[in-house]
Simulated assay, not measured.
Amino acid sequence: MRVNLFLLSCLFAFLAGHMVNYSVIFLSLEMFSSHALAGLGFGLCFMPPIVLGWVAGVFCDRYSPRSVILIAQNSYLVSFILLSLVVYDVDGMALNSKIALILIAAFFSGIGWSFVAPARFASLPFYVDPHKLTSASVALNLVVMTGFGLAPLVLKFIQVNWSWTMVMIVGAIFTLLSTAILLPLSYKFVGKKEEKAKQELLEVVQFVRQSKPIIQLLSLAAITYALMGPMQVLLPSVAKDILNLSDMSQGRYLSLVALALIFGGVVVMLVKSRLHYGCFLFLAISLAGVGIGTLGLLSVYSVSALVLVIAGALGGMAISLIVAGLQYYAPDHLRGRIMSVYTIISQVIPATSGIIAGALASSVNLTPALIAFGVFILLFSIIGFWRFNALRRTARLV
């Protein structure tokens, strides 16, 4: 029961966080028709973890991760307040001021993501028995992907039927609901003895470098998450400019990502014991890259939707298996910091690829930008299959 409530709290938090991200992207495209601004705003949503993610990892080993979550989620509220100022006075505010508020809101979202994501993963072991941790990790990652996928559908539904202001109000309510659910879910936590932060960070870096499975899993996570930036920055333009969909249909198209991620996560939970862990990881990542890369070439809605669902499901399966592997190999005393490294990757890599995708789409066009990222993912997954012997030979997580 407690773990289910914790996952529900996670769902509301991730929905709220991704609603900020998508609001930044949609407002940049709607008000300024700028892929570059959308990419920069999305980048600011996830760039702060480059610095703050390491601090978050230390905090999650020193202090209760639940307390870290309760404090950090307030950053989302700040983002919604700033964005509400942008949409409330659309005509009366100077364009430069709107741009500044959008980017500042994105930055505050980034502060929240820096702490919320690793603290959520670090809290999970306190709500489940050790032998259920792998399945619970897959379930939590499924919630993460559901929040990512449902956010644009919820956002577009509210915007079309009510207003942008209502989008911000609902996002703030989701944040408060997440906090309210988490407040009574306390647990006993014995913090790690405080040392110099530098020494604690060096300890986890040294461990990761010596653990082949973990460093290879983190590398595969980086390759997979390179797809997320183009998906969030460029898919709205695929829906609008290539498929010529209406506002509500754009939301439905983007929500297919949610269905795909959910489907992929559910399938992994059902068949993970039957898959060859390592080989399937490389195959899923490769095919997901090929699928996303071809979306710019497909102008028929049904075909584009089918490819998006297949690619999304494969990407979701890969990420779920990566998270399960990290939880399996991470020792308890380093778990918070190792998961913070993962969440830094899950945030910084999409931010970087999103900025690059936005710049590419603005300079060379949408379709070549998508193809370039598809080729990139395919190439690096092939290199990983060749070089990552430890993972390639791993058949099961016992």
Rank of each mutant, 00 (worst) to 15 (best):
residue 156 K to Y: 11
residue 166 M to I: 12
residue 145 M to L: 15
residue 192 K to S: 12
residue 119 A to H: 05
residue 75 S to K: 02
residue 121 F to D: 03
residue 105 A to K: 05
residue 187 Y to R: 04
residue 72 A to K: 01
residue 163 S to M: 10
residue 100 A to P: 03
residue 183 L to C: 05
residue 163 S to V: 09
residue 149 G to I: 03
residue 182 L to I: 08
residue 192 K to I: 07
residue 187 Y to N: 06
residue 166 M to V: 12
residue 112 G to Y: 02
residue 72 A to Y: 01
residue 79 S to N: 08
residue 117 A to M: 07
residue 75 S to R: 01
residue 152 P to E: 05
residue 166 M to L: 11
residue 176 L to V: 15
residue 198 K to Y: 15
residue 132 K to D: 14
residue 173 I to V: 14
residue 146 T to L: 11
residue 190 V to R: 14
residue 149 G to D: 01
residue 123 S to V: 01
residue 141 N to R: 08
residue 109 S to Q: 14
residue 166 M to Q: 12
residue 102 I to N: 04
residue 117 A to E: 10
residue 80 F to H: 02
residue 142 L to V: 09
residue 176 L to I: 15
residue 193 K to F: 08
residue 82 L to M: 10
residue 184 P to S: 09
residue 130 P to D: 10
residue 186 S to A: 11
residue 125 P to N: 09
residue 108 F to L: 02
residue 82 L to K: 08
residue 149 G to N: 02
residue 78 V to E: 05
residue 104 I to H: 09
residue 128 V to K: 02
residue 98 K to M: 11
residue 194 E to M: 13
residue 75 S to G: 13
residue 143 V to E: 00
residue 200 E to I: 11
residue 113 W to H: 07
residue 120 R to S: 13
residue 201 L to V: 08
residue 197 A to F: 14
residue 92 G to C: 07
residue 72 A to P: 03
residue 173 I to T: 06
residue 146 T to D: 02
residue 144 V to Q: 07
residue 184 P to N: 07
residue 96 N to K: 12
residue 144 V to E: 10
residue 128 V to H: 04
residue 72 A to I: 01
residue 82 L to Q: 05
residue 190 V to H: 12
residue 152 P to C: 08
residue 124 L to G: 00
residue 152 P to D: 08
residue 110 G to Y: 04
residue 97 S to N: 11
residue 85 L to S: 12
residue 201 L to F: 09
residue 115 F to P: 01
residue 70 L to W: 01
residue 101 L to S: 06
residue 120 R to C: 13
residue 176 L to T: 06
residue 159 Q to N: 10
residue 166 M to R: 08
residue 90 V to L: 13
residue 144 V to T: 14
residue 69 I to A: 04
residue 146 T to N: 02
residue 147 G to M: 04
residue 121 F to G: 00
residue 198 K to V: 15
residue 76 Y to H: 10
residue 188 K to A: 13
residue 137 S to P: 08
residue 162 W to I: 09
residue 192 K to G: 03
residue 72 A to E: 01
residue 77 L to A: 13
residue 150 L to I: 13
residue 94 A to D: 15
residue 181 I to E: 07
residue 148 F to I: 14
residue 136 A to N: 08
residue 108 F to A: 02
residue 154 V to W: 06
residue 125 P to M: 08
residue 182 L to W: 03
residue 74 N to C: 11
residue 101 L to Q: 06
residue 188 K to G: 11
residue 163 S to D: 10
